[in-house]
Design a protein around this nucleic acid. Sequence first.
DNA 1: CTCCTAATAATGCATATACACTATTATCCG
DNA 2: CGGATAATAGTGTATATGCATTATTAGGAG
Lengths: 152, 152
Amino acid sequence: MSGFDPETLKGVAAECPGFQARATARAVTRYYNACFKPLGLTAEQFSLLVGIGAVEGTTLVDLANSAGVDPTTLSRNLQNLEGQLLVHSKGGRGRLGKQIGLTISGRKLVVDALPLWNLAKAELSNRLGKEKLRSASKLMAELAEAAKTSRI
Amino acid sequence: MSGFDPETLKGVAAECPGFQARATARAVTRYYNACFKPLGLTAEQFSLLVGIGAVEGTTLVDLANSAGVDPTTLSRNLQNLEGQLLVHSKGGRGRLGKQIGLTISGRKLVVDALPLWNLAKAELSNRLGKEKLRSASKLMAELAEAAKTSRI
DNA sequence: CTCCTAATAATGCATATACACTATTATCCG
DNA sequence: CGGATAATAGTGTATATGCATTATTAGGAG
């Protein structure tokens, strides 16, 4: 038991950036999931569709990098979206990569989702304050970058 | 296609707090996962063990609330930790709830993990800056709270 | 032109996440 | 005391996540 102290652990829970980042992502994702639910879309699926629609002819690797998600995770998430006919792809294994794009249905769904996304963001902004929301986003981006370049 | 515009979508991706929160959680969690890997522990498991060890006789519901995680998620994550004999529990279904605590092995593992956690946090702090790391944690906590109380 | 290599995608496995639902039980009220 | 109720735990199902590994292929070296 040497070194075990509940008081110390209370401090650890309170100051762990990893814990806080996950807790925040869970809370915010739950909120957006609920917002997109009428469209049968999850928050992550919305983000992927937006990422795909934003860059004509993007590839799996490019999208994985810009979303900060593992390519193997993205591979499966894309399979799901392709199964729903929201995304089309060309190519696959091999050095040229897999080019992906939105289908007509995918574009339509994104267009339908945008108003919900705007409402959701506006409500968050009201609760937290516009400036704080902006700061939070900026700091989260910097924290993510720091984590990507950190090793011990 | 009316309303579909890639330029608009670039803006959406850049200003979505949900996307940013998830990307950050992924990056930070990957980092901590790598740090705890020598102990066969994930970042989330570490957080749970800390949360359990911090409060004597805590319950599943209490822990779920303090971690901001769904009770059904926690139920399964605890099953995993119990299977590894890191956590013991008493009670179950019913109004008294399930009391959980760390086993001797669980306490030992937390004690062993604390130095790694400190190193990992120190490295993040060096990269991002102590003040920014603190601000990020605080703002993420406020954002999570805002998301929990938001509805559209 | 052929072989090698490096970049890429996909799969196996495990954990994490949550909603909808079911099962259990202490407590409260009559 | 006995049934209703509310709080709690667990299960079914689905998505999300990533590491280790395998499969594929374009491009370069010879």
